[in-house]
Write a protein that binds this DNA or RNA. Structure first.
Lengths: 241, 241
DNA sequence: CAGTGGTCTAGACCACACC
DNA sequence: GTGTGGTCTAGACCACTGT
């Protein structure tokens, strides 16, 4: 992993930045780094581009590369990760709380037009409909409804889906879920939400819905996640160029 | 713009993909493209990497590059943009609706500890507090509270902040807001929200709050945006690697 | 083993910022 | 003009996939 040239340099540079090695917030030129570390300009550029994408530095053509002032403040809200508070995968974790799953229902259904479209199904294909309640330390925080084409996963059982489907996939079929396309929004909670998530009538749910992909691009699952609003928290660093 | 080699190639390739030039969803090899178009391998790689980041193709080392099946479905939910439905800047637009701003209040205040931290202020600096109501076709959809250090923008007036602050910045001071770090969440609406946004008591607000940066990395504004929940819609394409 | 994408190098020229 | 990051090239070797 870290034996790659640009990753090695990236690591070094991050350490330097965090230790305050550049009090004026201006980095040396790319050519300087290239000569100092005896690595190619391309490797320097690649590493700096990653830092820029993460918001740690700002590159200005004609001027130089500058450290984001907020990158030095440890207590900042700024944490440089495009992420929700739930790793977006099955591997939920949060402050050492223990994740749990309660299976609500497990059926095989005929897909709607939308599912056929979003999961790239043929006519006459069936999908699993899996409703689960996810918890932290026994406290429900999310109602998850997942739709998975049978052909992609013909041997699912209630036992399997009561645990992590993605882990099962990886271990038994060597398939990896590597990308997701999600839409984030919010809605007033309905009676079911209120009952299952312990919400008051005026408290909303967060919605995250969309498609998970295998690493060969196959749409694997359409998922509809209704979250207790206190668990909807998505951080995003965006370039407006 | 489009006279760059990799951008030209990118454009060509997108057109080919959209016209169904690769019905088996497998692209030629990078070396093939390099020779066919007489451009360097690096340029091909750069363009394909962009397509991969946008979710249009999937690159698999050892196997090849494949078109995302959803990329061919025109009616898909999939639109390849990490974006909210409100360009994140002052230049709101939506289905040709006419944006409007109503200034609610315009003050100078002593910043809180959090503001000092997030805007990288020194002690004894003051900030503007600007409360505005944003509308589409006269219909309010967002309450925006912005905090801007006086030193960055010493000549703000009620007239200026009744329009686009970011546009004013660019035109009068040649400063550009180019990045943002935002946290997205949701909350039950309070009385003020309900009154200003026309919400029922059980209807929530979406929250987008965080910092906007100038292109030299200066934190320019801390903004707190409370949206009518129907306008909170954020699309995100994520690699889980 | 052959094929494919990933990394790396050395060097050239371009576009933009600042003096 | 000088210095900076951005693009581009040609070519080498590595890591992984599938036969």
């Amino acid at each position: 992993m870290a034996d790659l040239v640009y990753q090695q340099f990236l690591k070094t540079l991050k350490t330097q930045i965090n230790s305050g090695a550049y009090p004026d917030l201006k980095l040396p030129t790319e050519r300087f780094f290239s000569e100092q570390y005896k690595i190619s300009l391309s490797s320097v550029k690649k590493a700096l581009q990653i830092l820029a994408d993460q918001g740690i530095v700002f590159k200005k053509r004609g001027s130089g590369t500058f450290i984001n002032p907020l990158a030095q403040k440890s207590n900042s809200i700024f944490n440089y990760n495009n992420s929700s508070n739930l790793g977006v995968t099955d591997s939920f974790s949060m402050d050492g709380k223990k994740p749990g799953i309660k299976l609500l229902s497990f059926e095989v259904i005929t897909p709607t037009k939308e599912l056929i479209r979003d999961l790239f199904l043929n006519e006459n294909e069936f999908v699993y409909e899996i409703k689960r309640l996810r918890m932290f330390d026994g406290q429900p925080f999310m109602i998850e409804t997942g739709y998975i084409p049978i052909k992609l996963c013909p041997e699912l059982t209630p036992e399997i889906v009561s645990k992590s489907i993605f882990n099962y996939l990886q271990e038994s079929q060597n398939k990896v879920v590597s990308k997701s396309y999600l839409t984030i929004s919010a809605l007033p909670s309905n009676k079911t939400d209120q009952k299952l998530l312990g919400l008051a009538t005026n408290e909303p749910v967060g919605l995250m819905s969309g498609v998970f992909f295998l690493d060969d691009g196959t749409p694997f699952e359409y998922s509809d996640m209704r979250l207790h609003y206190q668990y909807l928290k998505y951080n995003t660093f965006v370039s407006l160029d």
